[in-house]
Each structure stands twice: as structure tokens, then as C-alpha cells.
Amino acid sequence: MRHTLVAMVEDQPGVLNRIASLFRKRNYNIESLAVGHSETPGISRMTFVVEGDDRVIEQVQKQLYKLVNVIEVWDVTRMPAVVRELALVRVGCPPEQRGEVTELVHLFRARVVDVAPDSLIVEITGTEDKVDALLGLLKPYGIQEVIRTGRVAMVRGNHRSSEPTVSSPQ
């Protein structure tokens, strides 16, 4: 099963390397990783999508947590959460098809953010499924370039996220 893990990490040189090294060394399957600043200066927030059974995911969290620069880890897979990905797609599109493509894009609440004589850049935000669906529909027009950020997630409600899932040993 695919899990979404969130980690708060110290924003220090080499942290990404440590995490990548851990995943490689322990043979974990990482599907996507998104990193950016958090609300706290000096702390970055990472969202991982990791494939594995519960036992593997528990190990992933515990091993991550052992890294000195990792402060907290949550598995938000089964929590109510807002889950998003952003993608930019360059679609081949001669002027006569612009209307058609734009209509599709609007159906997905996506946007056209750049127009060139023979192509468009589409920006879409949503779950991976939604992004996949739009990509599927755009495919016949000729997708020239795609960039996807990977999943980010935030737990719904008041709490920042609930309790970290590994910091308190069971």
C-alpha cells in the first residue's frame, strides 16, 4: 500500500542526502518526495509517498526518526487530510485547438498559464488521480513536457497534525 508520510526536519546542509541515503540503504521504495520551508524558520517539511506494507512503513518512520536532523514523523495516510500535487504540462496545441483544450482544462479547474503559437502550458493542482486524469485527456494533443511536484499533505481540522506517529513508542 502507498503511504503518505510527513517529516519535520532541521534545515541543514546534507539533510536530503541523509534521507535519500537511508532509503537506499534500507531498500525502501520512495515514490515521491516534496520538500519546502515550514511555518518555523530553520525547519523544513517533507512529504514522502512510500510504497510498502504496514511493517515496512513502521520501519521507515522509525528509521527516519533515528536521523539526528529529523524532528518529527507522521503517517497521515489514514488521517483526514488535504492532499495535493501540482503539475505543469506543456501540450502541443495549434491555434485552432486552443478552445477545445482550454475547455478541458477548465473542467478540471486547472489553468492555462502560458500560450505559445503551437503549445500551451497548463497548471493543475489536485490529487494525483486528478492530475493523471487530465494528463490522460491531454495525451491525444501531444504532451511535450510534464513536471509534477509530488504529493504534499496537511491534516484537516485545528491541529497542526495529530501526534507524531513514532515519537511515542507503543
Binding site: R55, K62, Y65, K66, P169
Partner: peptide
């Protein structure tokens, strides 16, 4: 002392970190 060792190779009935 290392909670990552708990359940890594053997699933215990009771874990104490």
C-alpha cells in the same frame, strides 16, 4: 533502547523501549 529494533526482525508480544 532503539525503538526501530522493535518489530524489525521479530514481532514481540510486548515492547519496551
Amino acid at each position: 533502547i532503539d525503538q526501530a529494533e522493535i518489530g524489525k526482525n521479530i514481532r514481540p508480544a510486548i515492547a519496551i523501549v
